[in-house]
Design a protein around this nucleic acid. Structure first.
Lengths: 229, 229
DNA sequence: CGCCAGTTTGACCAAGATCAACGCAAGTGG
DNA sequence: CCACTTGCGTTGATCTTGGTCAAACTGGCG
C-alpha cells in the first residue's frame, strides 16, 4: 500500500523519477547545493524543536531522523521518519509544529528559507519539483491516516515493515534504525504491542529476528495479505 | 490546536491572507477562474472515484465534500472534509488514492490539470500560492495523525467540534452537515462512540444539541481543555 | 562478573467496538 | 389523515483489542 513516501527527495538522490533532469534543472539543483550547509548530529540530538521559527529546511545525507510531537501529558507521536535522500522541515507555518531528532548519528544538509525562496523564484523547474515532493508527502500522510484511523495492530506493524523495506529498497531483510518506542509512537501503539506482534509474526514464520534491529522476511506474502486495502 | 486547515483556498475566497493580492496576482486568479467549469452534485453522489485518473482538481463553491478511502472488508476512512472555499483533488499520483463524494448538495469548480499547469508556468505567483496551500494541507494532515494516533475518543470529538467551529468561523454554535457515520470515519471511531461522547458533553453542560445536525457551545473552555497539546 | 538500557513475556484491565433494542422524524401509500 | 416503513441517532449489555503494570531476559560494557 505504500507507493508514495515521506516528503521525498528533490532530485539529486532521486532514482524514482522517470526522466533524467535536463541541464537547466541540473544547474538549479547544483545551485541549491551551494546554499546548503552540512551539519552532523548524534543520537537523540535535537535538530530543531517544536515552536522554533521554521527558517530553514533539511535533507538527510546519512542516518535516520524522526519528527516528534509531544502532548502535555507526555504522550508522543512520530508523524514521520526521514531516511537518506528525504527532505524535511519545509513548513507552512512559521513555527515548527513538531520537533526533529536524530535517531542515531545523522548528517544533514541545512538550507536557509530566504535563499531557497530566492532560488525558487529564479528556477521554476526547481519550484515544480519542490511542490510535487510536498504533494507526495501529502499522499503519504493520507496513507498514514488510514493506518492510524482504521487498521489493527497486526496490520500496522506489517505495513510498517513493508513500507520500510520498500523505502530502503530491501528485498529480503530490513534494518530498523529506531527503537521499539519510536516504532510504537509512529504506529500509534505501545512498545509491548509492537513486540508481541513481531513475536507473533516470528511464530507464524513470516519473519525472523536475528537481532532486535534486524528483520528478515521469510514469508513476505503473509505480511502483504495482512495490509492490503 | 487546529490553526491550519484542509488543502486551503487559493486566494479568491481567502480572507486569512495578510496581504491583499496585488494586480498581477489578481489577474492570475481571474485567469484561473476562466479555465474552471461549474459542476453540481447531489447528496452521496461521487465526484471522483478511487483509482480514477487525477486529471483535474476542484474547489468547493457551496456545500460539503468528503473524501473517502475504503478497505477491502468495508472499513471506511475519511481523510478530509472540504467546505466552501477549500480546494481538493490536487494529487501527486496520477491515480486517485481516495474518492470524493458530496455530503449534501454541492457546487464545485472543476479545473483541468493540463490547463492549470500551463497557467502555473506563466504565473509563478499562483504557483507559489498553490504550493503553500499544499503545505498547509500537510500541516493539517500532521495534526490529524496526532489525533488518530494518540488521542482518546473524548479528545477526538472535542477537537472535531472546535476545528469545525474555527473553519466555519462559528462562535456560539456549529452546523454539522455530515452524518454520525461520516464523523466516526473521520475520527477513527464508531457512530456509537461518537454519539456517547456527544451525550456526555451534553450531560456535562459543555454543549447543547437542539437537533442532531446542530451543536451549540455552552462551555467552550471545557472542550478546549480536553484537546490542548 | 554485574549493571543497565532496551526488549520480551505474562497477568490483568479498560477504552472503545460490537451486537441489539429502542426512539424519532420524514416519507409513502392506502 | 393515519398506519407503516425507513433511515438515523441514541442507549444499554457484553466482548475484544490493545493498554497497563510488573517481572524476566539479553547483549554490551565498565
Amino acid at each position: 500500500m505504500f507507493k508514495e513516501f515521506g516528503s521525498g527527495g528533490l532530485g539529486l538522490a532521486d532514482n524514482s523519477g522517470a526522466r533524467v533532469a535536463h541541464s537547466s534543472e541540473l544547474d538549479a539543483l547544483i545551485a541549491l547545493e551551494h546554499i546548503g550547509m552540512r551539519r552532523s548530529f548524534t543520537r537523540d540530538e535535537e535538530i530543531y524543536a517544536e515552536g522554533d521559527r521554521s527558517d530553514c529546511w533539511f535533507r538527510v545525507v546519512a542516518g535516520t531522523v524522526r519528527s516528534c510531537k509531544l502532548l502535555a501529558d507526555g504522550r508522543r507521536h512520530i508523524p514521520e521518519f526521514f531516511f537518506a535522500g528525504d527532505s524535511f522541515g519545509l513548513d507552512a507555518a512559521d513555527e515548527r509544529f513538531a520537533s526533529a531528532e536524530a535517531v542515531g548519528d545523522v548528517v544533514v544538509m541545512r538550507y536557509p528559507r530566504g535563499a531557497t525562496e530566492r532560488l525558487l523564484d529564479e528556477r521554476p523547474e526547481l519550484a515544480r519539483r519542490m511542490c510535487s515532493a510536498t504533494l507526495r508527502g501529502l499522499t503519504h500522510a493520507h496513507a498514514r491516516m488510514l493506518l492510524l484511523g482504521r487498521m489493527t495492530a497486526t496490520e500496522r506493524v506489517a505495513s510498517f515493515l513493508l513500507e520500510l523495506a520498500e523505502r530502503r529498497d530491501a528485498k529480503r531483510a530490513v534494518e530498523l534504525p529506531m527503537s521499539r518506542y519510536d516504532i510504537a509512537d509512529y504506529l500509534g501503539l505501545t512498545i509491548e504491542t509492537v513486540s508481541r506482534v513481531l513475536s507473533a509474526f516470528k511464530r507464524d514464520g513470516a519473519i525472523a529476528v536475528p537481532s532486535p534491529h534486524r528483520i528478515e522476511f521469510r514469508d513476505r506474502n503473509m505480511l502483504a495479505e495482512l495490509c492490503e486495502a
